[in-house]
Design a protein around this nucleic acid. Structure first.
Length: 616
RNA sequence: GGCUCCGUGGCUCAAUGGAUAGAGCAUCUGACUACGGAUCAGAAGGUUAGAGGUUCGAGUCCUCUCGGAGUCACCA
């Protein structure tokens, strides 16, 4: 059993035996002892001083004596200001290291037979993926990896928003102004090609709007509706949707196209398929470059009519109610929310209807008891309501639903805006970080033994590691400011810093293999140095960190762990010699320790979707 | 305005209610004739937005104030 658990249980027993009062296990707090004190683990004694009716130090001393007697792994203890510091026999750490060395799956838990769906990315098909998608995708991918590591079987799902106004704009634009051009004819990545037509549509629409604003009718609206504290520009910005829906000729054309699509007009469907096909082709490349894949794709064109049967059931169960105009609502005022529409008066769906239906379909398809939706925090309210409704409907999977909400990615100059052309494209960004990594490799002159292809592959791993680590080290909930320059940093708290520690280890291991060095002598190593102990305690915490990341749906725990471990290793490397160690035992022990660190770093970074190079 | 989230050195971020709030970047100073210097060591930089409260103990929990973001669609 894990030493921390042993201590925890022993402390609970001690409290009961010494002071005659049982205590909850979770009240027993065991922390790694801070560097400046003697010991490996620390028991916080304060929670028991009341029960003990003694001063903290006296109680700590009593508990320490008890533990020393009853926990065989404990070699010594000391008390500082109510903290009980325990030292663990070196033999324990020796055994622990061997355990890690022999288990290449160290950190992973056995399969638990339960399923979890993780939904992420969920793009619109009218334009290419951007920086915001990258954060979403990295979080989703990593979250799936982490849940897999703690034992769940994972279904990675994507809901493709392939229908609606947006794609119609791209379609209309291409049909009207495209002159029959294709991605091939123009030599443009196909999703970008479609996106360019979307942008063109917005441009034409803007031009139409500006002309309209000068008409008499428009000026009439301006005078009538503009609020006193609004500038003319602000008014037109706010009025844009209304204008598009009521007065725009392009708006008419788009709605007409949408209606044709909904009535299965064959020419429209053909155009739709052609353009979506282009987009998917482009997405495929982007996903491939990001190193992610999906197990299941849901298409909104297949799901947008779902959920009406659930609305019927909800009415029958009196969870929902009908208003005079036949529209269906749920009253969530007792849960701190408002009334929410779930079906329009004319019987057509809204976003919520569709999500209700999709939730049930997902469950019917896979029977996942947990389901994670990776969606930006703009939609917090939507998901609160969605989950609350499903709970009230008594859906069996309702308790396992989780919205992994993350903050938007902003640039140092503020929010990304399509209109202002400040959207950072995913493909461009990846190409740029890899290019910079490649330049860096060349500058360092380490390329001597590398072929062109090898160098490109290493540059890819380094560049992507820089980008991914930069994004995933931040707590998901936090809005993050994406600084393009910092994202390609290769030094300090970065992906490449961690990769470098791995490469150092890899260098050692190559030599071990080449010289066929036997590590059995490690068992004779007597005096574990502080730098070594630091690595051991870090490795020891790895499974707990993964569990924590899984419980919190938070990959940043793993990122921070990997950074701390790499940092400790770099220090170890600098302070202590491995091959030139004083004794054969020390050399073997350090090699064994290095291998364990390397293995753990590789797995940890793998959970973040980051690959490790052998050389760099 | 209601609800939700956020506020930690110049900047970007850490810190299951526990010991002197930690890192990185930037700035300054050092360390290879050494297993790879994408490294290491050191300096400087903080009233954790502010005020109360709970607690043996608060960056963390509660209340209020200030500042920022999101949301409050028969859009998705």
């Amino acid at each position: 059993m894990d030493i921390q658990n042993s201590i925890q249980i022993a402390v609970a027993q001690a409290v009961e035996q010494l002071y005659g009062e049982p205590t909850e296990l979770k009240k027993v707090q065991i922390n790694p002892t801070p560097k400046e004190f003697q010991g490996d683990y620390t028991v916080v004694v304060f929670p028991f001083v009341k029960i003990a009716k003694k001063a903290p130090d006296a109680a700590a001393a009593e508990l320490g004596a008890f533990l020393l007697k009853n926990v065989p792994q404990i070699s010594d203890f000391n008390v500082v200001k109510g903290f009980l510091n325990l030292s663990i026999y070196e033999k324990y750490w020796q055994n622990f290291l061997s355990e890690v060395s022999e288990n290449e799956n160290y950190g992973r838990q056995p399969r638990n037979g339960k399923k979890t769906m993780v939904e992420f990315s969920s793009p619109n098909t009218n334009k290419p993926l951007h920086l915001g998608h990258i954060r979403n995708i990295l979080l989703g991918w990593s979250c799936a990896k982490i849940l897999d590591a703690v034992g769940y079987d994972i279904v990675r799902a994507q809901i493709v928003n392939d229908r609606g106004i947006a794609i119609c704009k791209s379609m209309y634009s291409w049909k009207t102004w495209g002159d029959g051009k294709t991605p091939d004819s123009e030599g443009i990545k196909s999703d970008h090609f479609v996106g360019d037509f979307y942008v063109l549509f917005e441009k034409k629409s803007k031009a139409e709007y500006e002309i309209w604003q000068k008409t008499e009718a428009a000026q009439h609206f301006l005078n009538e509706k503009k609020k006193a504290d609004q500038t003319e520009k602000e008014f037109w910005a706010a009025y844009k949707n209304t204008w598009f829906n009521q007065f725009s000729e392009l708006g008419v054309a788009i709605r007409e196209m949408l209606l044709k699509w909904e009535s299965h007009d064959s020419a429209t469907l053909e155009l739709w398929k052609k353009m979506n096909g282009w987009v998917y082709l482009g997405f495929e490349k982007t996903y491939h470059d990001l190193g992610v894949e999906f197990d299941k794709l849901y298409f909104e064109s297949n799901t947008y009519l779902l959920g009406k049967d659930i609305v019927e059931e909800g009415l029958a169960k009196n969870v929902f109610f009908k208003k005079e105009d036949n529209s269906v609502w749920i009253d969530l005022t007792d849960a701190g929310h408002d009334q929410k529409l779930v079906l329009r008066g004319d019987g057509t769906s809204v976003y919520m209807t569709q999500d209700l239906g999709t939730a049930r379909m997902r469950y019917e398809d896979f029977g996942c008891e947990k389901s994670v939706y990776v969606v930006a925090d703009e939609q917090n309210y939507h998901f609160q309501v969605l989950f609350e409704i499903l709970k009230r409907l008594g859906e069996p999977y309702a308790a396992g639903l989780h919205h992994l909400s993350y903050g938007l990615v902003e640039l140092p100059t503020g929010r990304m805006k399509t209109r202002e052309g400040t959207v950072v494209d995913a493909d461009d960004l990846m190409a740029e970080v890899v290019r910079l990594a490649d330049e860096n490799i060349k500058e360092r002159g380490e390329v001597a033994g590398f072929s062109e292809a090898e160098r490109a592959e290493i540059a890819r791993k380094i560049g992507m590691a820089a980008l991914k680590f930069y994004m995933v080290k931040v707590h998901p909930k936090r809005k993050m400011i994406f600084n393009p320059e910092e994202s390609v940093d290769l030094q300090g708290q970065t992906g490449p810093y961690i990769q470098y520690s791995f490469v150092r280890i890899n260098g050692l291991m190559t030599r071990v293999k080449k010289e066929n060095i036997d590590l059995a002598a490690a068992a004779d190593y007597q005096k574990i140095e502080p730098q070594e102990k630091e690595l051991l305690t870090a490795l020891h915490a790895f499974p707990t960190v993964i569990q924590q990341a899984a419980d919190d749906y938070d990959p940043s725990h793993i990122a921070n762990f990997c950074y701390d471990l790499a940092k400790s290793y770099h220090k170890f490397w600098h302070d202590l010699s491995v091959f030139n160690a004083d004794s054969e035992a020390a050399r073997a022990f350090r090699l064994k320790l290095s291998a364990a660190v390397g293995q753990t770093l590789k797995m940890g970074m793998g959970l973040l979707g980051i690959e490790m190079p052998e050389r760099m």
